[in-house]
């Protein structure tokens, strides 16, 4: 069929702009979908619509203006209706696209840091916030650094191969992180504010509360005017950060070769809050770790002026924190690498 079409003057003459406007506007209002509306647009504004034909044929200015005005109004009405319908259709579609929100998501493999790493980082972050740096120690140590420089008496039980793993007469797997105190102090002048985490080794038969390899964090502060009060204040802060602000600390006497006075830090029992229960053996308190004022012999050993400088040190077991805080019933679990356990933390 030819694109060109003969125009029938009779038809043109028959156009009644007002009636046409009314019919068209009604059709726009009654369109119930965007598709409907498209049909309305073609019918009333399309190339073959009465309006287009009339516009093509019209000769007098007034009728032309009237028709144009009608066209503009109709275009506007269609566009408004178009928007309304689009919104309605979107709402309808979205209402239909409901999902069961309780359906599980598509799994994404998620990794986990080992609990001991998490606690190590927590320790590091607490002390980084206090202005300490983190230093790395050695695990294989000379008896010089592991014992002599730390003021261990010759009769101290830890010097015995019954308690310590020796490589030869002068070489051991370090029994605590304390040798890193010496190595740090040997390489820098005071002030020293460090923590040093790492693996330690003792000849302990594995059971629920012992593994021959375990982790400690050493802390050391040496400066002018460091006091026992500073040590207690620092450990009180540490205990609350680790175990909760509502917990309380207590410090009791102890003995370590490398500190004098030596203390043990206790935290109020999380089960009974200090009133006594089987977990804390009816004392209300749970031992967390050892500490003390750096023995002057240790300071002198590294060439510090023990009159001018004082210091404190502590060495806490990370596994102990895991047991106390997370209820790990058996330390060996931490080495089993069972994914079900690793994913818990």
């Amino acid at each position: 069929m030819s694109e060109k079409q003969e125009i029938d003057p009779a038809t043109v003459a028959a156009v009644d702009p007002e009636a046409l406007e009314e019919t068209a506007m009604r059709a726009v209002r009654e369109a119930t979908s965007t598709e409907d509306l498209d049909r309305v647009r073609v019918e009333y504004l399309g190339r073959k619509s009465q309006l287009k034909l009339a516009l093509r044929e019209v000769r007098d200015r007034n009728t032309g203006m009237q028709l144009n005005k009608f066209r503009e109004a109709l275009e506007m009405a269609i566009s408004v209706r178009q928007e309304e319908l689009r919104q309605l259709e979107l709402d309808r579609r979205l209402a239909e696209e409901r999902v069961d929100v309780t359906i599980p998501g598509t799994p994404v493999r998620r990794g986990h840091l080992h609990l001991i790493t998490q606690i190590r980082r927590e320790f590091e972050d607490i002390f980084l916030g206090l202005g300490y740096t983190v230093v790395d120690g050695r695990e294989v140590e000379t008896t010089h650094y592991n014992f002599d420089a730390l003021n261990f008496p010759l009769v101290h039980p830890t010097r015995s191969p019954l308690h310590t793993l020796f490589l030869d007469e002068h070489t051991v797997l370090r029994t605590e992180t304390s040798p890193s105190q010496i190595r740090t102090m040997e390489t820098q002048e005071p002030p020293v504010y460090i923590v040093s985490p790492g693996r330690c080794y003792r000849r302990d038969t594995p059971d629920a509360t012992h593994t021959p390899i375990f982790h400690q964090v050493e802390g050391l502060a040496v400066d002018e005017g460091i006091t026992l009060a500073d040590l207690e204040g620092t450990l009180d802060y540490l205990l609350r950060e680790l175990f909760g602000q509502e917990r309380r600390s207590q410090f009791v006497t102890h003995y370590f070769p490398f500190t004098e006075p030596s203390i043990e830090a206790l935290v109020s029992c999380h089960i009974c809050d200090g009133s006594g229960c089987p977990v804390c053996r009816h004392s209300g308190w749970i031992e967390v770790g050892g500490a003390g004022m750096v023995d002057p012999n240790v300071l002198e050993f590294v060439g510090y002026d023990a009159e001018r400088y004082t210091g404190f040190a502590f060495g806490w077991g990370l596994e102990r924190i895991a047991v106390l805080r997370h209820g790990i019933p058996d330390l060996r679990e931490l080495w089993r690498n069972d994914p079900r356990l690793l994913r818990q933390f």
């Binding site: 980084l128 740096t133 009060a229 207690e232 802060y237 410090f251």
Partner: peptide, 18 residues
């Protein structure tokens, strides 16, 4: 030991960073 005040070291020169 239970009558020692709790204080913090003065830390005039520190640099806490990994």
């Amino acid at each position: 030991l239970d009558a020692i005040p709790h204080t913090m070291p003065l830390r005039r020169h520190v640099r806490g960073r990994l």
